[in-house]
């Protein structure tokens, strides 16, 4: 199981990388952590003709908080996010999500931006970033654009990234004080892609939900916001009934496609369980517990 041949480009500066990508256009594919791409290449399901390796772009290896935003550069590894004290303070939901991505040896190479660009519908990070209203910064030789993540991911393994563009950064609004968060997922085996998972962020005001964000992975062709659940949670105090109602609302209208690890009904069920667990934990955190 060996990859097909490709031409390899290894720029040492962002401008150089963007020039190469610009020149290659449709042909160019970015290699960051490679933890999803290289397996696909080994299976020969992906046979890119040109790989642009951005692992030398030290300038993109950052996770920094700045002006109410946590900015994560394209070279920042998932394990760096996991260890980042700054991230833990600014976007604890994201840190909780990243700790559930695969296993440490994968997170040592895998990048946050790479996960977003790969847009696996079962992946944790895109769902967490969706709940956090993150923005994707796409850079190209022509300039830069900021794309809300819900516009960036357009389908299973599909994004609106244009040829010549690089996901240079992901920008995450800092979660406010008094917010509660949780990422809950379920997979039959530890460390695998989840059957489904839920990212929840709650902003409480005097014990009631002022604003709720709920996003799900594994239930559709891309991560989805559960608007029904968010609506249902407004004003909630965290009673059993409210939790149940929100969890039910979260999966209403969802028809996940079946696969080996779960039929449609089972995926919905797991999504509902995860939403409920995540909301419950988020409430308790918002109240200063856990």
């Amino acid at each position: 199981m060996k990859p097909a041949p490709f031409a390899y480009h290894v720029p040492s500066a962002l401008t150089e990388a963007l020039a190469v990508l610009d020149e290659l256009g449709e042909e160019g594919r970015v290699l960051a952590g490679g933890q999803s791409l290289v397996p696909l290449m080994n299976f020969r399901l992906a046979q890119p003709t040109h790989l642009v390796d951005i692992n030398r772009l030290d300038e993109l290896d950052y996770i920094r908080r700045d002006d109410g935003v946590l900015a994560i550069g394209a070279r920042a590894r998932q394990s760096a996010l996991e260890r980042s004290q700054e991230a833990r303070g600014a976007a604890p939901l994201l840190v909780e999500a990243v700790a559930q991505v695969a296993h440490p040896p994968v997170r040592h190479r895998g990048t946050v931006c790479g996960s977003v660009a790969h847009a696996d519908p079962a992946a944790e990070l895109p769902a967490a970033l969706l709940a956090l209203d993150a923005e994707v910064v796409a850079s190209s030789r022509q300039g830069e654009r900021r794309i809300p993540i819900h516009e960036f991911i357009s389908g299973p393994f599909t994004t609106t990234l244009a040829p010549g563009e690089l996901v240079r950064e992901v920008r995450v609004p800092v979660s406010g004080a008094g917010s509660g968060y949780a990422f809950a997922e379920f997979s039959p085996r530890h460390g695998d892609f989840a059957v489904s998972g839920a990212a929840v962020l709650l902003q409480l005001e005097a014990g009631r939900v002022e604003r709720a964000s709920v996003a799900l992975c594994g239930v559709a062709g891309m991560p989805v916001r559960a608007a029904g659940a968010e609506q249902s949670l407004r004003g909630a105090r965290g009673s059993e009934e409210e939790l149940e109602a929100a969890a039910a609302a979260a999966v209403e209208g969802l028809t996940p496609s079946a696969d080996l690890h779960g039929g449609s009904a089972y995926r919905r069920r797991i999504a509902r369980v995860c939403v409920r667990r995540a909301i419950n934990l988020a409430f308790s955190r918002a109240r200063g517990g856990a």
């Binding site: 299976f43 039959p188 085996r189 530890h190 460390g191 695998d192 892609f193 080996l260 690890h261």
Partner: peptide, 13 residues
Amino acid sequence: SSYMDYLIPSAME
């Protein structure tokens, strides 16, 4: 046809 789908138990199972 891969270890993503044929699930060998890990230490956690």
